[in-house]
Design a protein around this nucleic acid. Structure first.
Lengths: 245, 245
DNA sequence: CGCGTAACTGTCGGTAGTGACAGTTTAAAT
DNA sequence: ATTTAAACTGTCACTACCGACAGTTACGCG
């Protein structure tokens, strides 16, 4: 079987939704492509940090421990670029553009992990973000050619796997989707609060008592796991729980 | 030049960001692939309606007028599926799953537009959504094979073009960045407020007085033309004036 | 019928946010 | 050297918000 054919077969499997197990997907990818390691991350952006929803990778426990203990996530430019943008992020490019992230690549080399790779942003609909990082073990020029040939395959495979994960997560009742399901009234009061209305104004608009507005707002805060109306509205806007103006 | 080579060359152009003109992108795509028509849509979901941010297509003014005047957007299953999901949407699949959308495909046939095609969801950050619809003029079985061969190319090309549009829009983007230019401190206090911190907490975090935090917040409210911190944060998140990550 | 959920209401007391008063200091640009 | 903008601070009075107390009503489901 030609390599082209193998790639198309794999994409067919993914499009059929026949792969919701990260380990399975990673095996498939590594069998089809000359990939050393893979990392899939799905997170919710907060003001000062990331709330990780899903994290799967093949780097092993030791590498993960190094990454965590040295606080490398704080300087990791790939996280920042890939979770914020839409365009594929080349590892070496990121390395050159952000000199302060050298410790990250140093650590990779220490434990024998290649510093060549690409991270594919996988923006999610509900304000969450995700990425698939692909790590390869080949010389720079060979990687350039290989990447040119297969970036499209990586991108489609990543998108399809991510879609499967999202659909599977939605069915299996993922982390946030369940807690963050707001009732109609909760959405309404949040929407008006985001429009700058006070409790009294919202009560007048909705034709209910001010106490009831507070009741819905309190429930919304509890469900969103936040401490103020301001934070609740920020979360709601980010997660598209209330309509955009 | 082989077809494969032409595809790779086109993707290279797109990745270099060398294509921010929709008409140019459409020409490139139609020259590289056997595509009849293309449509690029970027929108913000607003309750049950859509607020269209960008719309470019090659279907022509007559088709657009038919679409608009008959209110076909209300029954268009491709809009719903592609703007809501992450997975490519096959036109014929959508047609069979949603019998109520027949008028749409009838209208297409009336004016001589093929009903074969695929719509690629392009989820954007900050709650907006986008799609690239690809329309082809070939028999069903031929399209199945062609699609299988080139879906990955479509997906990567769409992603790269979309990225370029977003980046270009952010740079030239008249809407957000001009009137709403906040200073560094204003952005900081808004960010912490969005994280649920009180004035006292923000003051402690930034090492300044509580009064000064209020000063920045008041300035931010004035610049954003809003009446409460809650509304200010809602605006700031919507217009991506404060970091999402 | 009981159970869960959504919608709804009242009161008290403390903390947080908001406007208007009136300033100083530092750094960059003209 | 003057202007401009950003960063910074204090006090007073008022309003808004928020948690914790303790409920009622209506609807659908097993």
């Amino acid at each position: 079987m030609t390599e082209q054919q193998a790639v198309l077969d794999m994409l067919e499997i993914l499009e059929g939704g026949g792969c919701v197990e990260p380990a399975h997907f990673f095996t498939l990818m590594r069998r089809t492509f000359r990939i050393a390691h893979l990392l899939y991350l799905e997170a919710e952006p907060y003001a000062d940090e990331l709330k990780i929803c899903r994290l799967h990778h093949t780097f092993g426990a030791y590498a993960a421990e190094i990454y965590r203990s040295r606080g490398l996530h704080r300087i990791d430019p790939i996280l920042k670029l890939a979770l914020g943008g839409v365009r594929p992020v080349e590892w070496t490019m990121a390395r050159h553009r952000f000199p302060e992230c050298e410790p990250l690549f140093q650590a990779a080399q220490e434990i024998g992990i290649s510093t060549e790779g690409v991270a594919l942003p996988l923006p999610s609909p509900a304000g969450r973000t995700a990425l698939l990082a692909i790590n390869v073990n080949m010389p720079a020029d060979e990687w350039t050619a290989y990447r040119r040939q297969h970036l499209r395959d990586f991108q489609l495979a990543a998108n399809l796997f991510h879609a499967a994960m999202l659909e599977h997560g939605a069915m299996a009742g993922g982390l946030s989707a369940r807690d963050m399901r707001l009732t109609g009234r909760e959405t309404e009061v949040l929407t008006w609060a985001a429009a700058g209305k006070s409790y009294w104004e919202i009560a007048t608009i909705l034709g209910i008592s001010e106490r009831t507005v507070r009741f819905f707002m309190t429930n919304a805060r509890r469900k969103l796991n936040v401490v103020s109306n301001t934070q609740a509205v920020a979360q709601a806007v980010r997660h598209a729980l209330i309509p955009t103006v």
